[in-house]
């Protein structure tokens, strides 16, 4: 399988890359989605701007209550980072569940988010984390909340010529329990359904519940019905089950050869309950 011919550029800086984008180039990050699509000729870009040579685009830094993650930071760098593991364990756990070792060695957080695959793992965690996506274009930078960033299947809020520079996630202190749990599609590892949970207890009651869902519908979303059903409760098994049953409320579930819509919805409820229970146990 050989992709269609294209022009290749390897910009040394983000601004150089943005200039190339202005001339119609498509950014190439880890290539774990783009290259397979090019081989199948589902994507036929005329010009690729390889971001792999931009040195200062791969980093993980702590900054006033948040972690800043550079766009070309690989999944392996995230899963193995002591900083992410201790300050944002949900993101580390999710990264460790993406694809396989080789994919995690090359795939990047910015590339994954920009691709907006409705079955990708990161978007579930980023929804639960209420992450911000920092995009840069020729007119400057803006931070986009993940929920508006993920517009639709393979569609984001990025304007033409804009590129992701950084992903911002909050630091979770002790007392926040997290869990990412998925049903993986056997061949590709993509999530048939993936559930990301963050729970905080304030005394007896659950003070914060965040649930991100991927794989179920056109885009990853926050299951706000589930969140509201649990916040202020104590988190008994019956409460968790009732809240998990709301995880697909108002959602138009996908149907494909891997799972029908009713089966996907069923999986989402079961795994939401398991992820909630696990996160709750870890919060204590």
């Amino acid at each position: 399988m050989i992709p269609q011919e294209f022009e290749y550029s390897a910009p040394k800086s983000l601004d150089e890359a943005i200039t190339l984008l202005g001339r119609g180039a498509k950014p190439l990050a880890g290539g774990m989605s783009l290259i397979p699509m090019m081989k199948l000729r589902l994507a036929v870009p005329d010009h690729l701007a390889d971001l792999g040579r931009i040195k200062d685009l791969s980093y993980i830094r702590e900054h006033s209550g948040s972690l800043l993650i550079g766009a070309t930071t690989t999944h392996y760098a995230v899963e193995s980072s002591a900083l992410v593991r201790s300050k944002c364990p949900l993101l580390a756990e999710t990264a460790a569940n993406i694809g396989d070792v080789q994919v995690r060695n090359r795939g990047t957080i910015g590339g994954s988010v920009a691709h907006a695959d409705p079955s990708a793992d990161y978007p579930a965690a980023l929804q639960a984390l209420e992450a911000q996506i920092v995009a840069r274009g020729s007119k400057g930078e803006r931070a986009i909340p993940i929920d508006s960033f993920l517009a639709d299947t393979f569609t984001t809020a990025l304007e033409p010529g804009e590129i992701i520079r950084e992903v911002i996630v909050p630091i979770d202190g002790a007392g926040v329990g997290v869990c990412y749990q998925k049903v993986a599609q056997k061949a590709s590892g993509f999530a048939v359904v993936g559930i990301a949970v963050r729970i905080q207890r304030g005394g007896e009651k659950l003070s914060m519940v965040r649930v991100g869902v991927t794989g179920l519908s056109n885009r990853a979303y926050r299951a706000t019905h589930t969140e509201r059903a649990l916040e202020g409760r104590t988190g008994t098994p019956a409460e968790i089950e009732a809240a998990a049953n709301l995880v697909a409320q108002g959602v138009d579930a996908n149907s494909d050869i891997h799972a029908s819509a009713p089966y996907r919805t069923h999986l989402a409820k079961i795994h939401a309950a398991r992820a909630l229970a696990k996160a709750l146990a870890r919060a204590e």
Binding site: Y8, M32, V103
Partner: peptide
């Protein structure tokens, strides 16, 4: 498989295992 799934093409790139069917040589 040529579709990044089987791993038969795995090589080490700067100490990291990668699927060489899912990379351009120029990279």
């Amino acid at each position: 498989c040529e579709t990044s799934l089987c791993g038969a093409c795995t090589v080490e790139l700067d100490g990291q295992a990668v699927k060489s069917c899912t990379m351009f040589a120029v990279q």
